[in-house]
Structure formats: structure tokens, C-alpha cells
Design a protein around this nucleic acid. Structure first.
Length: 611
RNA sequence: GGGGGUGUAGCUCAGUGGUUAGAGCGCCGGCCUGUCACGCCGGAGGUCGCGGGUUCAAGUCCCGUCAUCCUCGCCA
């Protein structure tokens, strides 16, 4: 089939093209039929241009419906001054139609593709079901283009530094550790299964043994876990690994790469983001102490404060008993929160309770300075700096404790001091979420900022009380710090690992480690994790053996591509940055997958349902 | 696995237990020569997610179920 092929793109036409005959191909974005004249906004991936049709000369113009594909032959004309549209990049011109042809007629659409505002409310599943229409929207095209540019820049950055991209298998081996695997039945030996990789972890380490030295891959990863707004059953990581390197080498590579690529993208796509600079660096312990979590939002300050010492002998029973039991009394400032009503403070407390807090105590600091320091007759307190403190528990604290509290909190006028008493980890878990909520509410979590940081020195293992054993914090191949190896039998919780995360705005973005390359150390770690000889052989025999043939010291990291795009677009749902995402529990409403298989296929695979 | 929200026209949403379930957009028809969210007039379009129950009467109340969104747990 032949048709008039484009000579120009819709978005490129300007007044300088006036007088040119052009051919445009695209879709009818909107049709405005005024009777004596008809305007069609013709859209292609570069933009939109207005086409003018004379109904008398072209009596079949009614065939042009919303979202049909079109070829238009016409002459570019500069619009008269009063009809120019300053809101369109092509608004100075229009194309007067000489000929047109509807290449693909379109039925009425399931949702208003040409109206971005209405589209923002359209049912998610419907959008995914007709994804090929949803993706016609310029905003969706832009996301895909941004993603492609990001991946391209990452590849180029690494190619320029001696990395080579290596593909690793999708059909691989189940290593039942971590998340649930997606399984693929093996026809030739019924009862055996491939697993889809949760990450190419073992392959990339084997590539290091193979002497590749610098590997990367834009890798699909598969994890059969409950879905979340920032998770999909299949997602993409920039997986990379290097040999003969230290943690420092990997961190500086990632930092340089991220700064370069992110800043390029901000500029190229004119994103409403501030350029980024070097990453802050925190140890795991510092991060927990200052921000209550290992993924702090560093767009703003408001570090947690600790009152345990200040109130351990307090007359307020909850604080005293928590401290006596070895717990922590910790809190966070809420600037401006001093104005909240009793009800609003109650809602904050409810917020805390959602995350397991037993309660939340608070002090409101007034805007005005009090004149005379000391406990007041009305049950409030005025500090030596004049801060006027209110709250139902103020009366429990004598002046020296109140001063210690205000000092530890670095309290300021207008603050609400939110305080949680619990075991250290539980108090932190509540307060980090409260801190992020405060950042969101106050606007301190500035949308223009991308605050990247490294969190380093994670503990190698953490105690799993349910299973009564030590579990890897990262994964079983993570190298303990040499100087901490001495604790492996005596005090495993004390061992720090050569393990690091990259965090951006309170979200984990990348995670990596220096790997164990010595079989003897790997064996000791397996033993610590309670993995017996037989299991080691069955699950990890290949990699242990590989390490016996001159494995180089090596390590790597894997940043999430989907999340990277989400940071840049401010999307809160990962579906927005994936061309063909799943909904709900991993369902693809467009393809109708997963779906039933033919009885023949069941038989061929040697499978049947147990019920 | 737990909690919460949503489900009514193609889309987005209204809809006190009570007549024939409505609106905006879209769609169809008509009118319209400067629109750019074109405008005006008219029309069609409904398994009120599904199943059960209470009631003289259920979109509305109750129970169950399914889907979807968010969330806690989970995600080496």
C-alpha cells in the first residue's frame, strides 16, 4: 500500500516554512468543524500542527475522526496576527489542505486521549488495557523518550569507561532465598523448573571469575512478591560488576555516572529539577541514629533527637519505664506544627500508630516569647530562651528536664515536638515515617531537589527471631569487613559488611556490595547463616567451585532504572514509566496474561492441578 | 496474609430506602467561515461489578464475592 509519506514533522513547522508544500503524517488530535471551515490538530510524536480544510473543496472531510491516522498534503501558511496561537509551538502557522487521506479510521475511543487533564483521572486498568492508546499521549511519549535517553546515557557512560554489556540468561536456576521465584516448567524432564532471575547476581560474579573485569547490563529482574505503587513483577536494573576494586571505586563510579546522567537529562528534557552534585555519605548507624532508617530523605534536615538520657528519671511514667527497660525516647521536630489543633495532633498520633507506635507525646511551642522563665500556673512552661511550651504532659517535667528536652530537640518557636518511646528500632521506624510525612506536609521535601546519598557499612547479618537464625542483610555473597571478621563466631551482629545503598529522596535506589571471593570466607559466612553443606552444594556449588579457580576481588551495584525515571518525572506509580506494565496482582489486561493453557500443553509439560 | 478506599452511560462523576436513575465530556444527527477545551439545537446510550439477604419497596441497608487503587507485613 502506498500513501503520501511525510516530508516534515508536525512539531517542526514554523513561519519560515510559509509557502512550502509539505506532507504530514500523524493522528487527528482534535477536530473543530465550524461548518464553513474545519480545523484539525494533527499530532505526531514531535508535536501538533493545525490543519485547515475547506469543506466545499473536500466534501469527505467528515471521515476525519478523533485519533484516526492521516496523511495530509498541504501548504504552510503564516496565520494572520489575530489568529496566531501563542500556546502552541507551531501556533504561528497552519497547513492549508490540498489533499488528505485517512490511513486508519478510528472507532470512538475508550478514554479521552487528547485531554491530558481528564486522562489523569481515568481508571488505571482501562489505561493499561488500551495501553497503545494511552501511550499516544505526548506526556507518555515523553516518559518513554526520557527513559530511552537515560538508558542510552548510562550505556555510553559505562562503555566509555571500559565496561562491556553482557546478556545473561532469563531461564535460570531457582535459588530460594529472598523473594519468591517465577518458575518455568521444563518439558523434557517433568517436575523440573527453570526460575526467572530475581537479579543476575550469580552470573555477574561468574563473569568476574571469567575475567570480564567490567560488566554491566540493562537487566530485567523478576520477583513474585506483593505489588506496590513502586514495584512491578518484572522491573529493570542497571546491573554492574567490577573486578580488582574496592568499595570506594564503585561508589565514585556510581556517583560520577549518576551526576553526569541525571544532570544531562535535566538539561535535555528541561525537567523542573535542580542539578545535582556529589553525594552525601552516611554510615548505616549514623543514618539510623539521625533519621531512623537506612533510606533517609536528605532534602531537608530535621534529624531525630534522643531524649533517653534527659528523661530517664522523669516523673512521666511512659518515658521512665521505657528508659528503664532499655528502650529509647526519641522525637522529631515539626516546624509550624505548634499551630495544630488538638484534633490534628491526634491525627498525627494515629499516623504513628499505623506504624506500630503505642502512642505519641508532643509539646507545642508557641509563636510568642514568654516573659518569665519557669513552670507557669496554667501548666505551661517558659524556657530560659523564652520558648512557651504547651502540652498535656508538660506538668510532668521539672525545669531542668524541660530545658534538656528543648535543647536536645533544638526546639524553635512554632514547633511541635513529636516524641515516641519504644525500643530503639521501633521508635525509629515510627519516627522516620513521621519525619518524611512532616517533610511532605511542610513542603520541606522540595520537589525540585534530588538528594542522593550513600548509606554504607550495613551490618552483615541481622537476627531473625521467627526463624531463630542470622539472615543476610544484603545477600550471602556480601563480604564482611576484614577488621570485623573476628566477630563471626562470637558476635555476628557486630560485623559490618562492605555493603552500600544509594538513596534518593527517601527511596532506596541502588544496592551493592563487595563480594566474598575466597572460598574459606564464603564457607564461614554460609555456616553463620545456617546453610548446611548439602544446601550449599545444591544451590551454590557452581559458584563456590568457580571461586576455587582464581577469583578476583570484585564487587558491584544495581540501580533501578524504573525508579530513576520516577525521580525525574515525579511519578508516584511505577506503571507510568513502563511501556506495558501489569496491574493488580501481576495481571496484564491488554494481553490477558497470565491465561489458561491448552490441555495439550499441560500434558506436554507433565503437569496437572493438584485440586 | 491484614487494613482502608473505589466500583452507576464510552470516560469522569452526582444520586435522603420511595415516580421513568441524572450531569459534564464523548458519540450520533442538524446548524455554523477563524476555531484552537469552538459554539448552538436535538438525539441515542444503563446487567447501578457479581451473588444472596432484609423490606410493601434496594443504586441506596446487611452478608458474601470479584476487580481495582492505596497501605501494613513481605520484597536475600
Amino acid at each position: 500500500m502506498s500513501f503520501a509519506q511525510r516530508t516534515h514533522a508536525c512539531g517542526e513547522l514554523r513561519a519560515t516554512h510559509a509557502g512550502n508544500q509539505v506532507i504530514l503524517n500523524g493522528w487527528a488530535h482534535r477536530v473543530r468543524d465550524l461548518g464553513g471551515v474545519c480545523f484539525v490538530d494533527l499530532r505526531d510524536r514531535t508535536g501538533i500542527a493545525q490543519v485547515v480544510i475547506d469543506p466545499v473543496a473536500h466534501p469527505t472531510y467528515g471521515e476525519i475522526r478523533s485519533e484516526c491516522s492521516l496523511s495530509v498534503v498541504g501548504t504552510v501558511r503564516e496565520r494572520s496576527p489575530e489568529t496566531k496561537n501563542p500556546n502552541m509551538t507551531t501556533g504561528d502557522i497552519e497547513i492549508v489542505v490540498d489533499q488528505f487521506s485517512v490511513l486508519g479510521p478510528a472507532k470512538p475511543l475508550p478514554f479521552p486521549v487528547s485531554d491530558e487533564e481528564q486522562m489523569s483521572n481515568v481508571n488505571e486498568e482501562l489505561r493499561v488495557k488500551h495501553r497503545y492508546l494511552d501511550l499516544r499521549r505526548p506526556s507518555m511519549y515523553r516518559r518513554l523518550a526520557l527513559r530511552a535517553a537515560a538508558v542510552g546515557k548510562l550505556r555510553r557512560y559505562l562503555d566509555d569507561r571500559g565496561f562491556i554489556e553482557v546478556e545473561t540468561p532469563i531461564f535460570t536456576k531457582s535459588t530460594p532465598e529472598g523473594a519468591r521465584d517465577y518458575l518455568v516448567p521444563y518439558r523434557l524432564d517433568p517436575g523440573k523448573f527453570y526460575a526467572l532471575p530475581q537479579s543476575p547476581q550469580q552470573y555477574k560474579q561468574l563473569l568476574m571469575v571469567a575475567g570480564i573485569e567490567r560488566y554491566y547490563q540493562i537487566a530485567k529482574c523478576f520477583r513474585d512478591e506483593a505489588q506496590r505503587s513502586d514495584r512491578q513483577p518484572e522491573f529493570t536494573q542497571l546491573d554492574l560488576e567490577m573486578s580488582f576494586v574496592t568499595q570506594e571505586d564503585i561508589l565514585s563510579l556510581i556517583e560520577g555516572m549518576t551526576v553526569s546522567v541525571i544532570n544531562d537529562l535535566i538539561e535535555e528534557f528541561d525537567l523542573p529539577k535542580d542539578k545535582i552534585e556529589g553525594f552525601k555519605r552516611l554510615t548505616f548507624d549514623e543514618s539510623m541514629h539521625l533519621y531512623g532508617c537506612d533510606k533517609p530523605d536528605l532534602r531537608f534536615g530535621l534529624p531525630l533527637f534522643d531524649l533517653t538520657d534527659a528523661v530517664k528519671e522523669s516523673a512521666f511514667g511512659v518515658f521512665r519505664s521505657t528508659a528503664e527497660a532499655g528502650g529509647s525516647i526519641r522525637g522529631v521536630r515539626y516546624p509550624g506544627g505548634g499551630h495544630l489543633s488538638r484534633k490534628e495532633v491526634g491525627q498525627l498520633e494515629d499516623f504513628c500508630k499505623e506504624f506500630g507506635a503505642k502512642g505519641m507525646a508532643s509539646f507545642s511551642i508557641g509563636d510568642e516569647l514568654g516573659a518569665e522563665a519557669g513552670s507557669q500556673a496554667d501548666g505551661t512552661y517558659v524556657s530560659t530562651h523564652g520558648l512557651h511550651v504547651r502540652g498535656s504532659i508538660v506538668k510532668f517535667f521539672p525545669p531542668h528536664e524541660m530545658e534538656a528536652i528543648l535543647d536536645a530537640a533544638q526546639a524553635e518557636r512554632g514547633d511541635l515536638l513529636c516524641i515516641v518511646a519504644d525500643v530503639y528500632a521501633a521508635a525509629n521506624n515510627v519516627l522516620y515515617r513521621l519525619r518524611h510525612e512532616i517533610g511532605r506536609r511542610t513542603g520541606l521535601a522540595d520537589k525540585r531537589k534530588l538528594a542522593f546519598c550513600f548509606v554504607v557499612d550495613f551490618p552483615l547479618v541481622e537476627w531473625n527471631p521467627e526463624a531463630n537464625r542470622w539472615d543476610s542483610t544484603h545477600h550471602p555473597f556480601t563480604s564482611p569487613k576484614t577488621e570485623d571478621l573476628q566477630y563471626i563466631e562470637s558476635d555476628p551482629g557486630r560485623i559490618r559488611a562492605d555493603c552500600y545503598d544509594v538513596v534518593c529522596n527517601g527511596t532506596e535506589w541502588a544496592s551493592g556490595s563487595i563480594r566474598i571471593h575466597r572460598p574459606d570466607i564464603q564457607e564461614r559466612c554460609f555456616r553463620l547463616l545456617g546453610i548446611d553443606e548439602e544446601t550449599i552444594k545444591a544451590r551454590f556449588g557452581h559458584i563456590i567451585e568457580a571461586f576455587e579457580y582464581g577469583a578476583p576481588p570484585h564487587g558491584g551495584i544495581a540501580p533501578g532504572i524504573d525508579r530513576m525515571i520516577m525521580f525525574l518525572t515525579d511519578d508516584e506509580n511505577i506503571r507510568e514509566v513502563i511501556a506495558f506494565p501489569k496491574v493488580g496482582q501481576g495481571y496484564d489486561p491488554m494481553m490477558d496474561a497470565p491465561s489458561a493453557i491448552d490441555p495439550m500443553q499441560w500434558a506436554e509439560m507433565g503437569l496437572r492441578l493438584s485440586q
